[in-house]
Design a protein around this nucleic acid. Structure first.
Lengths: 263, 263
DNA sequence: CGCCCGATTGATAACGCTCAAGGCAAGTGG
DNA sequence: CCACTTGCCTTGAGCGTTATCAATCGGGCG
């Protein structure tokens, strides 16, 4: 999760966009600075990055009119918190974020990991208020897509509507899959499934599928996978001993994909 | 979950609709027969059941034009299965259903329970193919809402679009909450949370909140809650001994709401 | 009436949690 | 530039919750 960054409209509206991959983040990446980048993300790469299900060139101007600013978030800072009013969707442009939900007694459950190119903020649509919090795992930047504008656009452009529905549907499927992970798999299987999932999503977004920096802490991973940080750590160590992966701290290289899948 | 049934459009489009409650299903309910009811569900109760965010009376004819048939499903039968092509959303009109997802090795995870008045089928939107299966827990009937028609309508009527988005967003939130249950809570807490959730949803749909028939088997509940059927059974027995609930088989009465919440 | 599926309950074992100590790496201040 | 702090990771030992295996029970349906 490092180099390439994504343009807002293209992220939100394009299904998958394989980009050239540059990814060997052995050491810390240069943090993205800039306090707040309110520059308008104009059409930029969008024209090339193609709307999938055929937005005519007639609609391009409308697309470009989607007011869409960027924002940077420092590691550990929140893009939004549970309870914040909802008025925009986001797309991670660079870096990565985690989403989490809090039980009333304070326990926190990590509900998702978002790497560059993935949408964020859908949890606010139903109630007009964010139900989850989104926190940056590293210095990151996101594109802001005002929901009201997006809705209007969706009514004008069919393929845009289609795309938004897909986005929402994908989130539903992702979460169902995670329920299956949490409900049916053993600790080993959970960790393996998680690594393979991250790997695949990296590939989809044009990063390396077999090595990456996972900026979550062991505790975050544990929370996301329904286990303790110690068990995560032990499991990763065991995987390493078995020659399934190569890991030092947050850097992970998958050595034996088949081995992981067969768990 | 027994008596009242819902009209399709109203279900899909109305946020919550408190109906008069008649619910004391001590014994088996008369099964809904009729092989396949293709009668068109016309505007029926809809006019009364109010679109929330103001659909003008001008739009009523369009609403009524939403082609929308009903279908009955016998206990144990599937409304759709994982892999089936997706082309409609559904709303449970009477009865109840479970949704589930299968791991490649065959293990099945129950991902949801749907009682009368709740939507179904959202899992198919993202890929045009159902990812989950939906199986009737008792003889049930659903309303069929063709997705293509619905999409068209959403582009014409803003409040309809709003409603569909809310529906999708609610599903996302529901699933996030379930991830929290599976990831962070103990067995006791899971069962308690489940009972309270079902109770609340019953209340929202106009059923009794303190007693109901839960048509899932202990195994279904176990799968949904990430535990074995034995543990579910033991937990319910323990709750009963503690005076938290009253249970015999599928019938459940909640005696001490606060007690359950405080777990 | 008898069968069978589902529920209950018990005994035992295992997986993963808790508690605890130690290590490594990066950041900070003298 | 080094000592100190801090946050995160790793590893170990013991225990507890929950899974597993098994027997029995009960009710609904044929």
């Amino acid at each position: 999760m490092g180099a390439p960054s994504f343009e807002p409209v293209s992220i939100m509206l394009t299904a998958t966009l394989p980009l050239p991959t540059i990814d060997r983040p052995r050491r810390v990446l240069p943090p993205v600075r800039a306090a707040r980048d309110t520059a308008r993300c104009s059409a930029c790469a969008m024209r090339h990055l193609c709307m999938p299900q055929g937005v005519g060139t007639d609609d391009m101007p409308k697309l470009e009119a989607l007011i869409c600013t960027a924002r940077t978030i420092r590691r550990g800072e929140a893009l939004y918190r549970s309870g914040d009013p909802f008025d925009s969707l986001y797309a991670v442009r660079s870096g990565s974020m985690k989403t989490s939900m809090a039980h009333r007694d304070g326990r926190e459950q990590v509900t998702g990991l978002r790497i560059a190119g993935e949408p964020l903020g859908l949890d606010g649509i139903s109630e007009g208020v964010h139900v989850c919090s989104a926190v940056a795992l590293e210095d990151s930047s996101v594109c802001i897509v005002p929901y009201a504008e997006l809705k209007r656009l969706c009514r004008e452009i069919g393929s845009m509507q289609e795309r938004l529905h897909k986005l929402l549907g994908e989130q539903i499927v992702r979460e169902s899959a995670q329920m299956m992970v949490l409900g049916s798999l053993s600790a080993d299987e959970r960790v393996a499934a998680f690594l393979l999932d991250v790997s695949e999503r990296n590939a989809q977004r044009g990063y390396s599928s077999n090595e990456f920096n996972l900026r979550m802490t062991r505790e975050d991973m544990g929370s996301y996978l329904g286990m303790t940080l110690e068990t995560v750590s032990r499991t990763l160590s065991r995987f390493q001993k078995r020659g399934l992966i190569d890991t030092q701290g947050k850097f992970i290289r998958i050595v034996d994909f088949e081995g992981l899948r067969k768990l």
